[in-house]
Design a protein around this nucleic acid. Structure first.
Lengths: 229, 229
DNA sequence: GATTCGATATGGTCTGACCATATTGTGGTC
DNA sequence: GACCACAATATGGTCAGACCATATCGAATC
């Protein structure tokens, strides 16, 4: 009974993962670089191709590689940087499992937007993306199209914070909420309130008024999702 | 040349994923429930076991299932809810790929902590977890141990916000930063400043002073990571 | 009733094969 | 020499079947 350890023997594909991660770190690989082919990697590491493939699935799920079939410079496993798609999958599944609620997602979004608006206002960020999205909202002829440009506006705001992690979280939150946003806009009917909110946010950011920007964002979300305030 | 579509044929394991996700939604499965065995699932869906296994790797990576070998009620693929481990893997890999920088991680942490402190203060949250972590920090005899309890303090603060998504992000951020935190504490030498910060945060939360809590958290992070302020 | 030990269900791994796809090389044609 | 058709090839995607390790279950035994 002594010397018992609750460890789980590391599976082969986990070992492969560790090796790949090590290689990424040691060789300083970044997005765009290619990984060896599956068969080659399997031979190098002395494991079966199945194990390499399972490791690839993990890396692909985490938005770190993208596999392309065929031949040539673009084929094979290429390192990418798609944290947002990974986060989107994560949120969707955990919402489905009821281990997360929509309320928490929207709450998180409010946190990020307030932060981003504050940052953008104080940093005097470039607001061309925001203005473009605003124009797109004017031209929208359906709830789906409106939400599309609305999303672009808010993602541009997150991008303006200059923090890629926060941008990625924001994008995935919006992707996750897309369906609910369309519902909310449809239910709302008149989108002029939302348009006015966006103009107010943009004006505050351009004026460098962080406090006003944060307040405007919070009120905007309250308008868009009145049931959750 | 006409009729070209940039779609990628959906791979078999992606179809398996969709089927499992559908089943989760339709049957209302939640954490703790079991999925059919791999062989059984493969037969039901008319695919090979390899494809089922690749789908399982994805679900496991996203913190949605946990596979146990053996036989009995606990064996097989069990639905779980571990978004934080998935997020930790995601952050670690993207940091390694240089598609994220530590600065952005700490910045995000500041955002969350300010938010959580504000929430905890205004909501009059239970502070027993915070006090316990504070006591643990007093008893710490190494930088590692100190960071361990420091992490517990900040995670307890996030938990107090009542938002599981924010808690999960907080935990993964801390997990990702563990190594750097230990370095930072070691370099700092004297931890009394950090202890005092924590006491100040705790007091502000207990007093329900949101503004003071947010300020205290921000200054605390500035103390802990002076190079990034 | 308790113990022992084989049967069994489950995930983990491997091998080897075949398919689909996309590029590359090659040879013929003009 | 330029161009085009087509075979060769490298790559990921899938499958079938086997074997192993592990953990429980169950029946025979004490």
């Amino acid at each position: 009974m002594t010397d018992w350890r609750p460890v789980r023997r590391t599976r082969t594909f986990e070992d492969v993962l560790a090796q790949i991660e090590r290689r990424i770190a040691e060789d300083g690989l970044t997005a765009g670089d290619r990984l060896p082919a599956e068969r080659s990697l399997a031979e190098q590491l002395g494991v079966s191709r199945s194990s390499v493939r399972e490791a690839m699935r993990v890396l692909e799920t985490l938005g770190v590689v993208s596999s392309q079939v065929g031949r040539g410079p673009d084929a094979g496993a290429v390192l990418t940087s798609r944290p947002d798609t990974a986060l989107t999958d994560l949120l969707r599944l955990h919402l489905g499992l009821a281990s997360l609620e929509l309320r928490e997602v929207i709450d998180t979004r409010l946190m990020i937007e307030r932060w981003a608006a504050t940052r953008a206002a104080t940093a005097g960020a470039d607001t061309s993306g925001l203005a473009a999205a605003l124009a797109g909202m004017d031209a929208a002829r359906s709830a789906e199209e409106f939400v599309e440009h609305d999303t672009a506006f808010h993602c541009a705001l997150a991008d303006a914070s200059g923090n890629r992690l926060i941008s990625a979280i924001m994008r995935s939150l919006r992707d996750t909420m897309r369906r609910y946003s369309v519902e909310a806009v449809t239910r709302l009917g008149d989108t002029s309130v939302l348009r006015a909110d966006h103009e107010r946010i943009l004006a505050a950011v351009q004026a460098g008024d962080a406090e006003e920007a944060a307040t405007a964002v919070a009120e905007h979300l309250a308008h868009a999702y009145p049931s959750l305030s």
